[in-house]
Structures are given as structure tokens and as C-alpha cells.
Computed example of a mutant assay.
Amino acid sequence: MSQFERLTIDDIARLAEVSRTTASMVLNGNAERYRISAATVERVLQVARENHFTPSQSARSLRSRRSNTIGLVIPDLTNSAHAALAQAMESQCREQYRYQLVIVTSDEDPVRETEGIAHLVSHQVDGLVVVPCTADAPRYEKWVKRLPLVFADRRVETSAIPFVITDATETVATLVGEAFAQGAREVVYFGGQPELSASRDRLAGYRLALQTHGLEEHADWVFQRDYQRESGYALMKAWFEAHGRYPEALFAGSITLLEGVLEFVNEANALAQSPGRLMTFDDHQLLDCLPLRIDAIVQDSAQLAAHSLRCVFSLLEGDAPPESLQVPAQIHYRRKR
């Protein structure tokens, strides 16, 4: 038997010595409408305050058919980019829409992701924002008849589900292209899962930079695995051991991959030696504290969150299907240009 006591409206009514109907009307803000006396209202509210009672959200949802919650499914809360998106979305949900954000993580596991979506749907969230971890459209499309669903940060190209993503290709092309323009003859690329749209967009930017500068891609320049820190470490270790040196320049497709790269560089050389130029997708304030000057692409988490929520609420209100869009990114330069 649980040691915790769960109070109901019946308990509040009994303690306040009123009917259940009266207690319910007071606690749900309908006292004035039904002309309940001020003294009765104060007595019910006082009992509720003393017992830290909040009306059941489930009961409210049944009456209004709205739970005032939005679900967010992201791969990993330890990833600073996804954490920034979640933070921006939580504050905007609360401040602009008076909604509560409920977050689950997929750990880049499709099965766990599906379970997380099912959990949120079973708890009657009013809409979903998903950072998809697969390119398997049917996994997501089965939910769109149940509630509004929008992709953020990544898209599924074979799906009609609207998405809000960062314009990665042009920004990566600009940053990597500047490395070539300033004399780099070798830029190695470490990326994530090739089936993900974010991976394809970032690699497309890298290859666009090569094309713009009339360069051919070398066999030992592009490596893709996943976005885990361990992969950044393993890729850097393998490249270093194969060549006996660091690459002239390196672009890491995510901050987590960069963390793995830096872990190896620190372990092997205490950061005294490293790739001649380091670049990464996603930024973090800790990069300001490193002896290495790392240029980073900064996603606009606030805009990603704002447009994603706008799409969800547009669908929720039955408006015309929202258009997918790309949000511009910026480059945080730490090297002298």
C-alpha cells in the first residue's frame, strides 16, 4: 500500500463541508458563474491551499478535450544542441501558449522513440514535436491521424509531415570554403548517421565547398558513423594512427563528435598538438575557454522552437497545413579571419 495520500475533490468537499459539485465549481473557476457565495469559495480554496491540492488534469482534459501539453521527443538531453532546443521550446510553450512541455528521449533508438511517442499520445498531449532518429516515414505517419505532429531539426524526406530545420548546407559550405580559401589543402569531415537528413545536409555543404574551390574529395577525407562522443574519439584515433599526424583541418558534424575528437587530442597530446584548424556544427560556451580556436556553426534554437510550435498550433486549430521551412544559422568565429 502506498505511503502517499492522494486527495480528490471528494476529500476537499468533505473537509470544506460542501457538496462535491460545489467544490468542483470553485476549484475549476466557475464559482461566480453559479453564484456561489464568497465565504464558501474562500473556505474551499483555504482547504485546497492547506492540503496543496490541484484539480486533476486528466479530468480537465476529459471535459475540454485539451490537456494543454505538448510532447517533445529528442535523441539526447546531454547533447547541448538538443538541450537548447528543449529549453527554448519549454519557455515558449509556457510563456506564449500557457502550455506545458513534456519531454522524452529516444537515445537515437527507433524502438525507444516509438515507445516514447506512444507514451506521450497515451497521456493525451495535444501535439508532438519530434527530432526523428530514423528516415522510416511509416513509423511517424501512423500518428498524424491522432494529433498534430511536426519534425524539428531533422526531416524525413519521404514523409509529408511538416518540418523546421536549420539551413545547414549553405552555412557548412561557407565555413569549410573559408578554410580552403585561406590555404587549407586538406579538410577531413566527421559526420553522423548517413541516413539522417541532418547528416546529408551537412555533408552536402562540405562537398559544395569542395566543388566551389575546384577540389576533389580524397578517399580518407570523409567518415560517417553516428553523433555519439565515442564515435568522435574513435574516428580521430583511427585517422591519427593511420596517418601518424592530425589532418590539416577538421570539420566535426556535431558538438558531440567534437567532444570525442578533443578527448583523443587531450589524451594523446594534452591539446599541445591538434588539427591545424578545427570547425564544428553546433556551439558551446566552453569552447571559449579552450586554448584551441574552434569556429562553430550556431543554430537558432529559439527560432527552431518558435516555428515548430507555430506549426503544431496551426494544425491543432485546423488551419491550412503549415509550410516546412529552414532557419538560417550563424558562424561563431574564434580564429582570426
Score class of each variant (00 low, 15 high):
residue 101 L to H: 02
residue 95 E to S: 13
residue 220 D to T: 11
residue 50 E to P: 00
residue 9 I to D: 01
residue 22 T to E: 05
residue 150 V to P: 02
residue 182 Q to R: 15
residue 304 L to E: 09
residue 131 V to D: 03
residue 37 S to L: 04
residue 298 V to L: 15
residue 199 S to N: 13
residue 124 Q to T: 08
residue 157 E to L: 13
residue 131 V to N: 02
residue 73 V to P: 01
residue 126 D to P: 10
residue 158 T to Q: 15
residue 262 L to V: 01
residue 81 A to D: 08
residue 335 R to A: 07
residue 125 V to T: 05
residue 97 Y to F: 15
residue 40 T to P: 00
residue 327 V to R: 10
residue 142 K to D: 01
residue 106 S to D: 06
residue 310 R to L: 10
residue 208 L to H: 13
residue 145 K to I: 04
residue 109 D to H: 13
residue 121 V to G: 08
residue 201 D to V: 01
residue 111 V to W: 08
residue 18 V to S: 01
residue 294 I to N: 00
residue 8 T to L: 14
residue 42 E to H: 06
residue 100 Q to K: 09
residue 28 N to T: 15
residue 142 K to W: 05
residue 56 S to E: 10
residue 60 R to D: 03
residue 48 A to P: 00
residue 167 D to V: 03
residue 324 S to W: 02
residue 82 H to L: 07
residue 222 V to C: 11
residue 58 S to V: 08
residue 224 Q to D: 06
residue 156 V to R: 02
residue 91 S to A: 13
residue 63 R to N: 11
residue 96 Q to H: 10
residue 274 S to Y: 00
residue 150 V to A: 05
residue 23 A to T: 03
residue 137 A to F: 02
residue 119 H to Y: 12
residue 3 Q to H: 14
residue 80 S to C: 11
residue 304 L to W: 07
residue 141 E to L: 03
residue 268 A to H: 06
residue 145 K to Y: 10
residue 112 R to H: 10
residue 195 E to S: 09
residue 83 A to S: 15
residue 66 R to A: 14
residue 114 T to N: 08
residue 54 T to N: 11
residue 282 D to G: 08
residue 45 L to W: 06
residue 84 A to P: 04
residue 266 N to R: 05
residue 141 E to M: 03
residue 320 A to Y: 09
residue 126 D to W: 09
residue 151 F to E: 03
residue 327 V to D: 09
residue 79 N to M: 05
residue 124 Q to D: 09
residue 335 R to Q: 15
residue 138 P to L: 10
residue 186 E to W: 00
residue 238 A to V: 09
residue 261 V to H: 03
residue 26 V to I: 15
residue 300 D to I: 13
residue 248 E to Y: 00
residue 194 P to S: 14
residue 103 I to T: 14
residue 127 G to N: 04
residue 198 A to T: 15
residue 74 I to N: 01
residue 153 D to E: 14
residue 65 R to T: 02
residue 130 V to C: 04
residue 55 P to H: 12
residue 48 A to S: 13
residue 134 T to A: 06
residue 273 Q to D: 01
residue 185 R to V: 02
residue 326 Q to T: 07
residue 140 Y to D: 01
residue 260 G to P: 13
residue 106 S to Y: 05
residue 188 V to Q: 04
residue 289 C to E: 11
residue 312 V to T: 08
residue 331 I to L: 15
residue 296 A to T: 12
residue 48 A to N: 03
residue 270 A to S: 05
residue 189 Y to K: 06
residue 332 H to Y: 07
residue 6 R to W: 11
